[in-house]
């Protein structure tokens, strides 16, 4: 039972790390533990910590906790973890089988860095056009998008704070936009900056945060709301700094 619980914790932890909602993870862990033969399961999860206690049929209580640091978005892995947890619920697997499946899922491929750079450039360019920018704006935005992705990759390795990382990206994006304006490649910075902050701003974060709040996961919701607010603030700070350096708007 103890090892089965560890497996369930591993799966739940990875689901959170891949960007699953708190509600989903709680539900999955509960279902998995019950199908493994637990009498009762108590779960408390917030975005940065998990606590699970299961009661075995013999009356013993087992508790495990996990500290969650750093979450991202990896839908393919989440999809496969979700599949695995469903499989465990319908036909109980042994510990070794679960471990093997879990290991395979951990090796899920991600798109190569080149593709990611290209995609970030496309996002920046597309949204510059989306918000009414011209062709020149879009081309500048495209280049800035790729450079910002490169910077965020470097930050990932060297800067430990995710918030500071956003600050640097927003600063670089605005600075490059201002430089492009000085070189008279573009007539205004606004469209280029908007295109580039689309991939930085916590739009989805804030929406998820409000969703957690309204569905009853108050603490997780509050943490996410604060996080989104902070990110919005540092993006503004990055923009301000470059605007001041380049002598106003």
């Amino acid at each position: 039972m103890k090892e089965l619980l560890t497996c369930a914790m591993d799966i739940g932890e990875q689901m959170l790390v891949c960007g699953a909602e708190v509600h989903r993870v709680e539900d999955s862990i509960q279902r998995m533990c019950l199908s493994m033969g637990a009498k009762r399961v108590d779960i408390f999860i917030i975005t940065s910590s998990m606590v699970v206690t299961v009661y075995t049929p013999s009356g013993e209580a087992l508790t495990q906790t996990r500290r969650i640091t750093g979450t991202g978005t990896n839908m393919e892995r989440l999809h496969r973890l979700n599949d695995l947890s469903r499989k465990i619920c319908t036909s109980p697997l042994g510990v070794t089988e679960i471990r093997e499946e879990f290991q395979k899922i951990q090796e899920t491929k991600v798109y190569s860095f080149g593709v990611q750079c290209l995609v970030c450039a496309v996002i920046a360019g597309a949204f510059t056009l989306f918000f009414g920018g011209g062709l020149a704006d879009a081309l500048v935005s495209l280049c800035v998008g790729a450079l910002v992705k490169l910077l965020s990759k470097i930050c990932e390795k060297t800067v430990t704070s995710r918030i500071f990382d956003k600050f640097l990206c927003a600063f670089a994006a605005s600075l490059l936009a201002f430089i492009a304006m000085r070189l008279s490649l573009i007539s205004g910075v606004d469209k280029v900056i908007i295109g580039n902050i689309m991939s930085l701003i916590p739009g989805i974060g804030l929406t998820n945060a409000l969703r957690d709040l309204f569905t009853g996961d108050h603490i997780a919701g509050l943490i996410r709301t604060i996080e989104s607010g902070l990110i919005a603030l540092v993006i503004a700070a990055g923009y301000f700094l470059s605007a001041i350096l380049m002598g106003g708007v």
Binding site: M75, E76, V119, I123, A126, F127, L129, F130, M198
Partner: peptide
């Protein structure tokens, strides 16, 4: 462009 943006974000989120 909205569609392109969604597609690109989908790739970033590793949807396959």
């Amino acid at each position: 462009t909205g569609f392109l943006g969604s597609l690109s974000f989908g790739i970033l989120f590793n949807i396959r």
